[in-house]
Design a binder for these strands. Structure first.
Lengths: 215, 215
DNA sequence: GCCCCTCAGTACCGTACGGTACGGTTCGTG
DNA sequence: CACGAACCGTACCGTACGGTACTGAGGGGC
């Protein structure tokens, strides 16, 4: 069976075989459950039923494994772009609320939290390579999606702002506030999660009060 | 000289001698410079010219040292409460801008960033003890100061909000947005810091547009 | 002048981890 | 059937770190 797997690649065209993807899945599981201390090469090998030698052949070294984990997880999260046609006020609000909910869901996900903790913990090592990777593959796609939505709103005369970057910052801040940091620090997120819908709507309403066109 | 130091306590009444404070200072220096990996007990002992045995006598174990570092740093940051008398619109705005600037300065400080990285990295260990400590000694005093200011503004009829916690969340989000996370991930903060003043003012203006009384 | 306490410096121990090497097994291929 | 590639499982090595024990020196208290 191994020979077959070894050449069949994973869908995302990331150059990973299914076997390697499964190994990364197990590694993410270990990271989520036990933090970075639990993410040892021997542990990954044991959990994934593979040998350490294969790990080093596939990913180079431990840092390569960490990078591959981030890239792999990012490849699974698809940020669907919104078709910006026929946008009225209610539609814009609905899209913004959906974005806000998605944002909160992603940021509060256990894998996202674990990877952010990992990258933050390594930020003072080797030029924060993991941090930059996480920004590229995690934050940027989200910001792009929001930016497109905001631009569409402005084009439709529904939003007013000078700097799109700044407007996105306001939206992000109103939605997330300090919840992300609190969750990263270990605060229990379950009590927070059930309030995401209301929170997203209030934040979007506040954002529209600030930047709503002709409002 | 040692005997003298050993009984003279540090000003904050934290039960620490000056010598122990100096050791914690060196430990913070090591943490800032090299991250958690550089914060070894042997390294601290060498940098502070003390013995490992003293470290363990004073702080129990490595986790005790980390906790002491957080408490020590927090004891140095004094959050001055604002006298809420004679508050007019301009005064409120000035106070809010000052708060926003202080908040950005604190969060972007290298010691703060290093301690946050440390606590976040340990969040999945032993019930995120460091995370809770950082929240108690770091976030809470700041939130208290802001909360008092907001309440004073409401009493003076200058602010309107239902939930003080939510209003504080909006203020925090507008001021900080995702800059804190980006700095934690290792993004260079120097380019950001020079813009703090403008950033604080724009955020406060937005906040006042949302919650400014009769406005 | 003597005792005792504190502390620096160092040597030491156990362990855990990153990385490597090797034997054995399962496949596909000619 | 023979060969080779990929790979699992494990044993192994060097190192680094947390924590402990010991030695010796510098003062205070009486």
């Amino acid at each position: 069976m191994q020979g077959v797997e070894a050449t069949r690649e994973t869908g995302a065209g990331s150059g990973l075989t299914e076997r390697q993807g499964a190994v990364l899945e197990q590694a993410l599981r270990l990271l989520v459950d036990g933090g970075e201390r639990a993410l040892t090469t021997a542990g990954v090998a044991r959990a994934a039923n593979c040998s350490k030698e294969s790990l080093y052949k596939w990913f180079g070294d431990r840092d390569g494994l960490l990078s591959a984990m981030i890239a792999f997880q990012a490849s699974k999260v698809r940020t669907l772009d919104v078709s910006a046609e026929a946008l009225d006020a209610a539609g814009l609000r609905a899209h913004l609320v959906a974005f806000a909910k998605d944002l909160l869901d992603v940021l509060s996900g256990e894998v996202s939290l674990a990877l952010n903790r990992l990258a933050i913990g390594q930020a003072s090592r080797e030029g924060s390579k993991l941090g930059r990777l996480l920004q590229e593959r995690g934050r940027r796609p989200i910001a792009r999606r929001a930016g497109a939505l905001l631009e569409a709103g402005r084009k439709a005369g529904l939003l007013a702002f000078d700097d799109a970057e700044e407007a996105y910052g306001a939206l992000y801040g109103l939605v997330v506030a300090d919840w992300h940091l609190r969750m990263l620090l270990g605060e229990d997120a379950s009590a927070i999660k059930k309030d995401f819908s209301r929170r997203a709507e209030r934040a979007v309403d506040a954002f529209l009060a600030l930047h709503g066109g002709k409002g």
